[in-house]
């Protein structure tokens, strides 16, 4: 078994050491993307399937870059236009792919628990790229890495997640990851988009954005899914922006400079003001850059490092690379 186990389903069940291992492993991978030839042969010969049952641009492309820069062979399967539409079950789809001798599956699925369900049923490594309202571990890992880059640490920082906490897998993964690494976590958003009992996770609840801004070192502004309005969670987008929009005027009143994050895609003028998104304290594009490095680290760690093989290969002469 690797240092992370067979699959990466979420951060809830990872130890602080395992999370730190991923972040530390991501560091050298940042440099790989700056090389003239942005590629290392670490996963040569591995086949990875990106199984996306939900629309995604950034995450899918980021995973694909990560896979290609590790020299893995990749195949993209989207739900539309595949056998899924003809009624095939998730397990059948995956087993058929496995019959073609694949090594890993990166899955995005609208149902919470899909990644865990799949991981228990196939031999290949499974990486969760977002399952329903459950978790989006690589997003939280890249957020953690970006915070660590900017502040030099995570422990002791105050990080507030703003917006739709109720439906957000990004929020859930961030809460687990931040708490495990010793940050203080706040949440702020309308009551209708706040899960009941959220305080029980050990986070502080802010009802007004102004209070969150006064408290926090970092604001992670979540995307407001526009269909929330149609379903009656918020009265209107303008109303939301007026009360919960992260604007330059609001940030001007902050006692210190806040780092601004957003997992994308942004709705400018809904949850975030353009002047904030493009401002000097925004690390939104650094998050995207770090996403590739973090995903390379996760794939690399899941693919390699089986100690029982290492011991067998070492033999009496020590490691293979003297």
């Amino acid at each position: 078994m690797t240092a992370l186990g067979k699959d990466l389903v979420g951060l809830e069940h990872l130890s602080p050491d395992q999370i730190r291992l991923i972040l530390d492993t991501a560091e050298p991978f940042k440099e790989v993307s700056e090389r003239p030839i942005k590629k290392v042969p670490a996963l040569r010969g591995k086949t990875i399937v990106n199984l996306f049952f939900e629309a995604s641009t950034r995450t899918r492309i980021s995973f694909e870059f990560a896979e290609k820069r590790l020299s893995a062979d990749t195949v993209n399967v989207a739900a539309s236009g595949s056998a899924v539409q003809k009624g095939e079950t998730l397990v059948d789809t995956a087993k058929n792919l496995e019959a073609m001798r694949i090594d890993m599956v990166v899955i995005r699925h609208p149902s919470s628990g899909a990644a865990l369900f799949l991981g228990d049923r196939i031999r290949s490594n499974v990486v969760n790229a977002g399952d329903g309202k459950h978790e989006h571990p690589t997003q939280a890992l890249l957020d953690l890495l970006t915070i660590r880059d900017k502040h030099g640490k995570i422990a002791g920082l105050k990080v507030c997640l703003v917006g739709d906490i109720q439906h957000s897998r990004v929020a859930r993964s961030n809460i687990w990851g931040l708490l495990k690494l010793g940050a203080e976590v706040g949440v702020c958003g309308p009551d209708t988009l706040m899960p009941r009992g959220i305080e029980e996770l050990g986070v502080c609840r802010f009802r007004r954005l102004e209070e969150a801004i006064e408290w926090a070192d970092v604001l992670n502004v979540l995307r407001l899914q526009l269909e929330r309005m149609e379903k009656g969670f918020i009265p209107s987008l303008r109303e939301y922006y007026r009360v919960f929009g992260v604007t330059a005027e609001r940030l001007d009143k902050a006692p210190r400079e806040l780092t601004i994050m957003h997992p994308g895609p942004m709705n400018r003028g809904v949850e975030i003001d353009s002047r904030v998104a493009d401002g000097t304290h925004s690390v939104i594009l650094a998050q995207v850059t770090n996403g590739v490095a973090v995903r390379m680290a996760v794939l690399y760690l899941l693919a390699g490092g089986r100690p029982e093989l290492a011991d067998a290969a070492k033999g009496p002469a020590g490691g293979a690379a003297e």
Binding site: E31, V40, Y300, A320
Partner: peptide
């Protein structure tokens, strides 16, 4: 130069590979 990512034995590098700076 850190050659970890160019090794021919990824599966045997141990559970916590340390990749140095290149």
């Amino acid at each position: 130069l850190d050659i970890t990512l160019y090794r021919d034995d990824l599966e045997t590098v141990g559970p916590k590979p340390v990749i140095g700076e290149t």
